[in-house]
Write a protein that binds this DNA or RNA. Structure first.
Lengths: 219, 219
DNA sequence: ATACAAATTTAACCATGGTTAAAATAAAAA
DNA sequence: TTTTTATTTTAACCATGGTTAAATTTGTAT
């Protein structure tokens, strides 16, 4: 069993490029985990000695197959907890992330499989993120694009939002954005990359920060 | 927020004498937490400096009001998790303790209150142990006696069993002992303190270990 | 009252996962 | 190509929560 810190390192590395297993710069991990770069260097060695990372000085780190396996386990636990907390206990989009962030480190394989079954072996979590199955296999991903790359004039359906920022989640909830919400792109402003949209009869100006954290699919 | 270790110390101390707040010998805690006596001495100082324990060298430790408050919070989380895991996810008596032991340290006040509400503000957990409410108040305790102190010839109803030993839980489940099971005391053997009982038409010889971990009430 | 045994505490040590500050390396600009 | 800047690594350090072994205190017999 890995410590909480180690699980978080592997998860952070995985999250950098979800699918593609490219080298991740130390500073990204430091930022993600809110620790110093020095801590990253040290842990990179430790995890590399355990065979979970490939690490070359000054070149960032990369998950080994073994490391990715562990990362996917943590992500599985996180996403199943989020779904569980929303479906069963009625928590909100804004509330689940922080709770799941803690619970994911205290959940046995046995328990998470019970939860998985209870939930009907779901393939996606409440943010539209794929849930690895008990063997670490991810479901096939729907083809999505970032809202920041949408075409003006077209209408899309929200397919996924980035989890982690409860302020953002609260905002999205407040203005009524949810999975599968239909959004029409009215106008894209290049000077600040904000986008003017129409949704359920209302207009909203969504900032770059926001449109960069929403993925959509064609209706 | 207390660390997991500190929460476990306070819980272990509380568990020594549930209600009465008597000094707890170091060796009891060491045994309970599976750490050395040296670790206990050191932590006793730490927690005493934090105002959670009264500690006099060689005289054991005692929870302060503040310390008891924290202990009850941990116990509340533990017991609500046990009930939740059994009621919602269908875990067994033998399975819940170890899972709850981990989850209890990763559950926010917010989440545990949601669970409490979801469960209908239960007063007792699946082992018959009282669940402190959100203010740390325990429900009124039914009058029970240890099975080892029962009278031969009388019939009782199981009111509570000691949680923690999954082997024991498995055994009790296997022979059909559950909360509210009716048991008639047939004969008490003084040489090894075992007890011969009748239950659902079958006879069982329960060892001292077993009868010391079951509390019963008059039918 | 004294000696012995048991329990407890202290001392010295260790691993983990952090920190800051300085040194080294890589990347970018001149 | 050289210099400057940004990133990464190393070194020295710290807190936490453990360990074992030795010293001390307490309780129990004799």
């Amino acid at each position: 069993m890995l410590t909480i810190s180690k699980e978080n390192y592997l998860k952070a590395i995985y999250k950098h490029r979800e699918g593609e297993n490219l080298p991740v710069p130390a500073s990204y991990i430091a930022d993600e985990l809110q620790v110093s770069n020095a801590a990253i260097s040290k842990m990179a060695k430790t995890l590399s000695n355990k065979g979970l990372l490939e690490y070359q000085k000054h070149k960032g780190v990369r998950l080994t197959d073994e490391g990715e396996k562990f990362a996917l386990k943590v992500i599985r636990r996180h996403r199943l907890w989020e779904l569980f907390l929303i479906n069963v206990l009625g928590l909100t989009w804004a509330e689940v992330h922080d709770e799941a962030e803690k619970l994911e480190h205290s959940t046995s394989e046995f328990l998470i499989n019970k939860m998985d079954k209870f939930l009907g072996f779901p393939k996606f979590d409440p943010h539209g993120s794929p849930i690895p199955d008990r063997n670490g296999k991810l479901p096939e991903l729907p083809s999505v694009l970032k809202m920041s790359e949408c075409e003006a004039g077209k209408t899309y359906r929200v397919a996924r939002v980035q989890d982690g920022d409860s302020q953002l989640m609260k905002y999205l909830t407040r203005i009524g954005i949810n999975l599968n919400t239909e959004i029409t792109i009215l106008e894209k402003f290049s000077f600040d990359h904000s986008i003017n949209v129409e949704m359920k009869g209302h207009h909203y100006l969504l900032s770059e920060k926001v449109v960069d954290r929403i993925w959509v699919a064609d209706e």
